[in-house]
């Protein structure tokens, strides 16, 4: 017996825009790459485990290969030593791609205002959604994921290129790399 959409619609035909159909597919199956470095990554473990259960939002297929992922979640402090690694992994992800900056350290350096911590990862890579908190509660991670899904459903289109062409991070100077 058919279940889900087949059970409801049977053999009938649905007309829709290609744009909405693809966006619907995208938002329902985000594949996150968790760039977990510190405390926030432990909270992400909670997000993935049964109590908060990220699979309710279709994003439980956590991939540790950037080439298979379309959502980067930067969870934790990024030091200057780590920055080239972050940049390289971001570049390895195929487009379209989205970035969540989770927690105070990733967003702004947090209370690590010192010689070793990057003061916000948006000086290295472009960010779509920021989450506050040190570390953020699991609900906040889910909220950020929903915000990305809303972005996909309402604001974005497959015809438009998603990559910010004029973004220039501190490590984007090609001579240095």
């Amino acid at each position: 017996m058919a279940v889900g959409a087949e059970a409801i619609f049977g053999n009938s035909v649905i007309t829709t825009k290609l744009d909405s159909a693809i966006s619907w597919a995208r938002e329902s199956s985000m594949w996150p790459y968790v760039f977990g470095t510190a405390c926030c990554a432990i909270e992400f473990m909670s997000v993935a485990s049964s109590q908060y259960d990220i699979s309710r939002f279709g994003a439980e297929v956590v991939r540790f290969s950037p080439r298979q992922a379309d959502l980067m979640i930067v969870a934790g402090t990024i030091s200057y030593k780590q920055a080239p690694v972050l940049k390289r992994i971001y570049d390895q992800m195929t487009e379209p791609k989205w970035v969540i900056s989770a927690g105070a350290c990733a967003c702004s350096g947090g209370f690590y205002d010192n010689y070793t911590t990057v003061q916000g990862i948006d000086s290295i890579i472009p960010v779509d959604v920021y989450i506050a908190g040190c570390p953020p509660r699991p609900e906040a991670f889910l909220d950020a994921l929903i915000k990305i899904q809303e972005l996909q459903a309402k604001k974005e289109s497959i015809i438009k290129d998603r990559v910010v062409k004029n973004f220039k991070g501190k490590l984007d100077d090609s001579k240095k790399l």
Partner: peptide, 18 residues
């Protein structure tokens, strides 16, 4: 050497290569 007392705490240094 950052822990020397005359090294300013907020003086970060960009790393370009691993």
């Amino acid at each position: 050497h950052p822990l020397c007392k005359d090294y300013p705490i907020t003086q970060g240094q960009l790393c370009t290569k691993t």
